[in-house]
Amino acid sequence: MPQQASTSTNTGTVSKNTVQSNSTTTSTGNPFLDGIRLPEKPETPEAKDQMLKQEDFFALLSQQLSMQDPFKPVDNDQMIAQMASFSTVDGIANLNKEILNLNGVMSSSQALQASSLVGRKVLIPSDTGAITAGSSEIKGVVSTPEAIDKITIRIEDEAGQLIKTYEIDGSAGGNVDVAWDGLDKNGEPVAEGSYSIKASGKVDGQSQDLPVSTYAHVTSVSLGTAATGAILNLRGIGGIKLTDVLAVSES
């Protein structure tokens, strides 16, 4: 009797260990329980590349050839046309990549060349200039369609208020240089800020506004993008594309 009790106890211990071991495995040994058991880790399908490559094209072409009607085979011209079309598309994709790389190289090269303009003045198609601590005057160019005896110059501040009026000689015609010393009508220096140079004169007996371009100081150069190219950062003005520069001045 004592021996039987000992055997029963050992059996119970073995059964408990067996259940505990089975609870940590992926299979219980019972097909029904294994079928309704939830998976420990959800299976997620791997992401597939949706782009068709050259290998995919040739695989499709092989399937097309193997499944064709022997009495109506695919014409050789059609096969060559399909292969040529795929090669053309693949070539265009590679060409686009090369063009993007070339644009990046050209943008960097253009910015490197434009860096030589730092510290110099460039003529821009704007009538607005800046008075700063380092530059107390504004220079520009007035474009005239013909020779004009007198060109009236008006200096205005950012609010459009008239600061000073004077006249320059325009008898030479064409592009006429204009300069403002940064003094108001009373001869007092104006405050730092942006000021506009307005020009007008008589053309064919009638008074007309004349286009004005001003010089600005280049402080730095930005790379920009492939569409804009290099950007020149101008003191008191902001950024302007290198392609918009009209002329370069020594000082």
Results as ranks from 00 to 15, higher is better:
Pro2His: 14
Pro2Ser: 15
Gln3Pro: 00
Ser6Glu: 15
Thr9Glu: 13
Thr11Asp: 11
Lys16Ile: 14
Lys16Gln: 15
Val19Cys: 05
Ser21Lys: 04
Ser21Tyr: 06
Thr24Ala: 14
Asn30His: 04
Pro31Asp: 14
Leu33Lys: 07
Leu33Gly: 07
Asp34Lys: 04
Ile36Phe: 09
Leu38Asp: 12
Pro39Trp: 00
Pro39Ile: 01
Pro39Phe: 04
Glu40Met: 13
Glu43Ala: 13
Thr44Ala: 12
Glu46Asp: 13
Gln50Asn: 14
Met51Ser: 15
Gln54Thr: 13
Leu60Asn: 11
Leu60Gln: 07
Leu60Val: 02
Leu61Thr: 05
Ser66Asn: 13
Asp69Arg: 00
Lys72Gln: 14
Lys72Trp: 04
Pro73Gln: 11
Ile80Ser: 13
Ile80Asp: 14
Ala81Leu: 11
Ser85Lys: 12
Asn96Leu: 13
Leu100Glu: 15
Asn101Arg: 10
Gly104Arg: 11
Val105Cys: 03
Ser107Ala: 15
Gly119Ser: 10
Lys121Arg: 12
Leu123Ser: 10
Leu123Cys: 07
Ser126Glu: 10
Gly129His: 07
Ser135Gly: 08
Ser136Ala: 15
Val141Ala: 06
Thr144Gln: 04
Pro145Glu: 08
Glu146Asp: 10
Ala147Asp: 12
Ile148Leu: 12
Ile148Lys: 01
Thr152Glu: 15
Ile153Met: 06
Arg154Ile: 09
Ala159Tyr: 05
Gly160Glu: 10
Leu162Cys: 05
Ile163Arg: 07
Thr165Phe: 01
Tyr166Gln: 04
Gly170Tyr: 02
Ser171Gln: 09
Ala172Ser: 12
Ala172Gln: 12
Gly174Arg: 02
Gly174His: 01
Asp177Tyr: 02
Asp181Cys: 03
Asp184Pro: 00
Lys185Pro: 00
Lys198Ile: 12
Ser200Asp: 13
Ser200Ala: 08
Val203Ile: 12
Asp204Thr: 07
Asp204His: 01
Asp204Val: 05
Gly205Asp: 06
Gly205Ala: 08
Gln206Pro: 00
Ser207Gly: 03
Ser207Glu: 15
Asp209Arg: 02
Leu210His: 04
Leu210Pro: 00
Tyr215Gln: 11
Ala216Gly: 10
Val221Gly: 06
Val221Phe: 02
Leu223Ile: 05
Gly224Cys: 03
Ala226Tyr: 06
Thr228Val: 04
Thr228Asn: 11
Ala230Gly: 06
Leu234Met: 08
Ile237Glu: 03
Gly238Cys: 06
Val245Gln: 08
Leu246Gly: 06
Ser249Thr: 01
